[in-house]
Design a binder for these strands. Sequence first.
DNA 1: CAGATATATGAAGGAATATTCAGTTTTGGG
DNA 2: CCCAAAACTGAATATTCCTTCATATATCTG
Lengths: 208, 208
Amino acid sequence: MSKHSPSALKPRKTPSQSRSRVTVDAIFEATIQVLLKQGMAGLTTTSVAERAGVSVGTMYQYFPNKQALVYALNERFLTRLAEKVEDTCAGMAGRRACEGAEALIDTYWSVKTERMELTHALYRSVAELDNDALVQDFAARVDRATEGMFRACPDLSTGDIDQINLSLTAVIYGTVRNAFERGLEQENISALKSDLKAMCRAYLSSVK
Amino acid sequence: MSKHSPSALKPRKTPSQSRSRVTVDAIFEATIQVLLKQGMAGLTTTSVAERAGVSVGTMYQYFPNKQALVYALNERFLTRLAEKVEDTCAGMAGRRACEGAEALIDTYWSVKTERMELTHALYRSVAELDNDALVQDFAARVDRATEGMFRACPDLSTGDIDQINLSLTAVIYGTVRNAFERGLEQENISALKSDLKAMCRAYLSSVK
DNA sequence: CAGATATATGAAGGAATATTCAGTTTTGGG
DNA sequence: CCCAAAACTGAATATTCCTTCATATATCTG
């Protein structure tokens, strides 16, 4: 378990019967829906319970407090993201660096775009609940994956891999997020994406 | 006044005597300090008033509610940022595109870096208080400035200026923010900055 | 089917804190 | 020097919401 999961945030108990598994799923789903419809401000224990069709007490059987609920939700999504990135990086091992970078952009972009609104809402929830630590953990995990990928590139000298990895990921993740913050049209988004790829390509051939 | 400044967020009254001007300044300063020391969670009307050395009631003479206070604070900083960017863009009119881009990076970076902690705190405060509208307004303002700059570049064909402006600014602003979210060392930061410049240069010569 | 375990309920308690306002003090112009 | 306007005070109010727990219901196991 991550060092950034103090007991105050850990699930209280794990469902053992199928009934409760359904309940927990409903709670997660309700959390998402409330987050989308009302934002963090409207995310009260009552509103979530109501939407999930359970009583507040039930929520507290599985989550020690409201914060833990949002924490768990973010954990779910970050895990999914990390796994996808890891898959991509593994699949690109040994390919040229710019191919790896492009694949990384595609993967990251598609995961974040898949559920735009939710992604946006989760970004904010992290800021509000001081869940940076959680994000940092996942950033480190994803960084290991991309670093490994770049380290295995035949066309990259091993010297500056750390910095190359840092710069590429900072630019990619930053740009993706920025694309969310502005409400870009689909047309602009895809142009931005291909421009981003072009920049990464150009950068890589300059440091090669 | 911006269309995104509903009366609920506008200052209640403007100080006329010098005593109250001092008071309002103290309130702003206190807000910053509390934000830095306690974060958004600890930013209560009481804590701000206490730190400012005034009573809560005084705060409410100038700001209709807590949100308005943070709103005003963000407005201050965004205005400063916008002005600096506008200055830079005006100063770069007629220069080559990559020079303009580099100057933009330097300006934006230095404003954000000047008070790192505060910048970080303000980023979060915006997310928490749903102040996107405010940010969007300033983004538009800054965008006009950069677009003008690029439009005046002798080495850029006028056709794709909009997209070029969009892509460059998205990458630049996104990367800067990402640099804050990770707790990068000064060394990595400056390497990242020069890599970012390299990418922008390379991108511009590819579309020229 | 009976006891044991797991799950669910939701009213009541309680803590935090945003906001008001009636009364007091300070300021500056005439 | 005086008084109207400006500024300030802070206890009291009002609201919002998280969290608990005693009780009830459902499910499982032997």
